[in-house]
Write a protein that binds this DNA or RNA. Structure first.
Lengths: 197, 197, 197, 197
DNA sequence: CATGAATGAGCGTTCATTCAT
DNA sequence: TATGAATGAACGCTCATTCAT
């Protein structure tokens, strides 16, 4: 079904996939009609079913693709490194940046996977779990406050990233570097002015 | 249209409204059929249109109701008080708690308005804006770190609350008080162990 | 069902009847909803069924009323008089006028009965039949051209009246007298200029 | 939407169009269900919307088709010729015949356009306007009685044709030639027996 | 590989009519 | 007599999916 034999087929399939990404991101899953996708791809409705079993199938494939990319990052250990005490802040910033860059690399796909898919929540939960594991390890190492509820800490990190990402997806404003560093700082240091209090 | 003249009508209308809330929360807007709603309310399909102009109209009414409740809180100034330096932490916790309690008061409605409605994002943005204004005022008062990007601070707060709320909506675990206090602490103090670093 | 016992009931019934006439004339049978009628009458939907068995029933009653009025004229023999040779033209004009006046007396009802009712055609056919009988009699009497196809003559008369009536119902322009006389003249004398030909 | 790419599609479309004509003529616009049309065409409900945007759209298309045919006749000048004095009667008969033949050529369509469509009246008014213009010209030429109200003359002609047509549509009796000639005679010469009066 | 044509299943909405008070 | 509430039965339209070529 999904197997393509010729180069031309390959190309049609990827055109459909791309069109689907665009349309889903633009309209959401339900509002996107198969006819929208094929129109954007310049193909017929029937052609769609040459490459995908159903509308849901493309969507699923898109999500799977996203999950795959995320897995690569997770496997690379970027999200679960032990921090060496010397340069903690910089490492945290770097980690956040890596994640953010991955998510920003394919904006439309990210939008679909994280914010439009029914199981977007579970993906975000997966990220949160990774981060939580990281916090736990570093809490044991004494770098994270011992009284911190790590689940809440992870939620703060992920929740903040979610919102920053949404803003960025909408406006496109802000460089990954500055966003990552601002986010890391808030999470690391909190918002209070300790000098005064 | 929406006018009900007798107690019986009043009741039917609210049964429909309640059923709609439940079904929308359970299935989402699109997947919820008018037939689902009336079935849950024990009324006929036609009765639905006695009280609401359309499926979309009930949904809108639900959201409006939620917005109204939120407005009450905002007007009460709970979300934008100047903190007196003495007991900052307690006040922050109290404010977070007030917001959380409001949102938890009608779990299903909150779920719909915040996470299922197309304009849920804008509602959350509204909350973020309120919090940001609050941060700004308190930054000027010296209570908040002068180098903090208040927009990011507000996003951290709202993002965290979003995630906590989602978890709570799903699991029902955790008392508002402890959640609010944990959230407030992370945002105020950050996650790092300052003694060590 | 249709029987009214009290004065108040009598009044409600006639209010409904009047409202029905207006609405049917304005919107046509199908487009007129029972809710339109009762709204115009200032009563509830249920009240409607206190006085009429169905939407169709009111309509039928209206038509019957019209048929009755027409019958009166027919019975009065106005449409089937033998013309006395002396003043044929004036008598024809008078007859046409009598018919026209009847039809114009209740414009909305006429509009409904003749032009909106499914059996409006049969009513018009009835009028044509009367006129044809009249022509036949007068043809025998030598007043009408012996070579005239009386059916066609009757159709000309009725067809013309139909069109004049429609125009008048729409614009309200023209006095019955002048319309009747113009119509009678065309039918009697034709359109050609005999002096020349 | 209306574009058909293959012969098969072309055929389905015209089958639907034909079925629509039949059903509309038989039942009228409102009483005709899309399901009736597709049943008569041997297609599925959905297929209907492959070729027409809505039920109303087919109806409109039908009317437009009729208007087009009429326009052809009008443009051909058949309805607005100057009569040459010699053979006036024959020319009038010929003109009436041409019109009648056009209208009889597609009986069902004519029935729909003239007698069932909401704007049937305006179409008939259009015909009347053409005829009136014709009368006016010929009145100036001295062929038509100078004292004739041409509007009324046109109404007599059109009104008569309407009735003859209706009868013919119902019974199918009468050849176009004889109907046209009888109609022309009544309109030209009137009904009175001039020898006597 | 690709398409135009076709369809089944479903959904939101309307409206004449009835019921309970 | 009158009403607000309620309903059954339709109907127009949409859309993901399949078929024939």
């Amino acid at each position: 079904m999904a197997a393509t034999r010729t180069r031309k087929g390959e190309e049609s399939r990827s055109r459909l996939l791309h069109a689907a990404t665009t349309e889903f991101a633009r309209l959401g899953y339900h509002a996107t009609k198969v006819s929208d996708i094929v129109a954007a791809a310049g193909l017929s409705q029937a052609a769609f079913y040459l490459y995908f079993t159903s509308k849901e199938a493309v969507f699923t494939e898109l999500i799977a693709e996203f999950r795959g990319r995320l897995q690569v990052l997770a496997d690379a250990g970027k999200l679960a490194t032990h921090l060496s005490p010397e340069s903690v802040p910089d490492q945290v910033r770097a980690n956040v940046l890596a994640l953010l860059q991955l998510l920003m690399a394919d904006a439309t796909l990210t939008r679909i996977a994280l914010f439009l898919a029914p199981d977007g929540e579970s993906i975000r939960d997966g990220i949160a779990a990774l981060i939580m594991a990281n916090l736990q390890a570093n809490q044991a190492a004494g770098i994270i406050r011992p009284d911190l509820d790590v689940a809440v800490g992870a939620d703060a990190m992920v929740g903040l990233l979610e919102r920053l990402l949404r803003r960025w997806l909408k406006t496109g404003e802000g460089a990954p570097e500055s966003l990552a560093s601002a986010a890391a700082d808030v999470i690391m240091y909190g918002i209070l002015n300790r000098e005064v209090l």
